[in-house]
Amino acid sequence: MVPQELKYTKEHEWVRIEGGEAVFGITDHAQSELGDVTFVEFPDTGSEIKQFGSLATVESVKAASDIYAPLSGRILKVNEALRDKPEIINQSPYEEGWICRISVADAMEERNLMDASAYETYLKESG
């Protein structure tokens, strides 16, 4: 189940680019590997992020997984709903379970991301 319209990172983040902004979260594969999510540690809104730099942590009972920025930019918004209900990430990783909305600093960085079919191949190869 890999949505076609999204871009992906090797660290299993997805990103939806909407003009000068982007929304991202973790993929269905990532949430199922992690198990029941118990906590999300967000970056401060307004902070600058670098592509592939670590910026948040998603925790389950057995692991804490770093989340890496798919693109450089600035944090505009974090998904406040996850503070009380982190399990939304398990239930709806691509929709309700988004993690951050950012302003995109450099649209060219999109080249460094995978499209859905490349990600699917990547999953098969690494699985």
Binding site: D36, T38, F39, E59, S60, V61, P86, E87
Partner: peptide, 13 residues
């Protein structure tokens, strides 16, 4: 045992 498989997810949340 007195308990069986305590709910770890509930404990963490």
């Amino acid at each position: 045992t007195p308990v069986c498989r305590p709910d770890e997810v509930k404990a963490a949340r």
